[in-house]
Design a binder for these strands. Sequence first.
DNA 1: TCTGGGGTCCTTAATCTA
DNA 2: TCTGTAGATTAAGGACCC
Length: 394
Amino acid sequence: MAEEPLSSHMIMHVDMDAFFAAVEKHDNPDLEGRPVIVGARPGSRGVVAACSYEARRFGLHSAMPISTAYKLCPHEVYIRPRMKRYAHVSRRVMAALAMVSPHVEPTSIDEAFVDVTGLDRHSGGLEETGRRTKDAVFKETGLTCSVGIGPNRLIAKIASDFEKPDGLTVVRPGAVLDFLAPLSVSVLRGVGKKLGQQLEGAGIRTVLDLRKRTEPELARRFGAAAGKKLFAQARGIASDLVGGTGTRKSISKETTFNEDVRDRDVVRETMRSQATAVGSIARREGTAGRTVNVKIRLAGFETHTRSRTFEKATNLDGEIFRQGWTLYQKSGFTNRPVRLIGIGISNLEKKSQLELFSEKSDKERRLAEAKDRIVARFGKNAVGLRSPRRDPLT
DNA sequence: TCTGGGGTCCTTAATCTA
DNA sequence: TCTGTAGATTAAGGACCC
């Protein structure tokens, strides 16, 4: 195989195998060889977060409703997620990757991109780089991972998924088009159930099928943004940058009740504790949101959102709660049983706690709070307020 | 069958604003 | 001041990802 040109980047994608289940097995050797399912409690509302390869043989997969999983696999090991433990192992994984290359971008708790451009020139080839990475991760954690290496993030990601578990796939620049051609379009980013069905309806099953369509046709059928992305991905074109900004855009908390809730007090107290959690994360991260969002899910999975944007950003629990509760009360759904309630902030701005607290005196704050309570209870007319499009939060 | 939680991004329509 | 318009922002819903 010809060497790739010096200018081309090489990106590695590392994906831990059945991560949560693998950690549980590692911590408890008695589970070896048994189907292990990490997720919601059987009998409750929830899904499979991860399952071992033994469980997959029974047809289980992540995101499957736990009730369905239990029907398929009633006698196996069900474990509630231990996120702190997984986060700890995740840090060890990332540390191992950092020994391979300084350019590591974690994209989730169990995945990362690594820029390995040029590494093969002084360490015996891309395959060798991949093997060294897998060894480093195993040595550090005792867990296996699958590794894909390609000229950009798209190819690296698809390659890491190509031979799971414990796989290693290298796709050199000259081999990209042939590698992609026979694969299902569902390997592409942004192609899920809905778009997959639409593509199928248009006679597009494989990446090669997709490559035969023009960009204008794809844009017309699937929308401008999706069409453009599909056209590029079909040709193996994607970003080769590792180490993006990684700044988050929103903070939210949501709760699915085990049974739909009619009691408004339960909804209110749930929102209050969610707002406290959201506020404390925002303050810890030195950020605040101008927009407060509420998510309401009713029977039949009917989901609605309400949001309101203010002039000033907040990260105060009480304000987040008050605005969220007002949005819920004005949603028009308060007489319907609630399956899920959630609250969050977006439109984030960097802000110190000090700045936020100093923006208003205590007296002003108490006055505003009292006014808000009256408005929430009796409507705007009760305090003779007009309704500007944007009110300051404070 | 019956669908978590925490995110990102896209589309569309309505509303402001220069 | 009125009118038309283009572009930005907001709001709501939804697809998708891990």
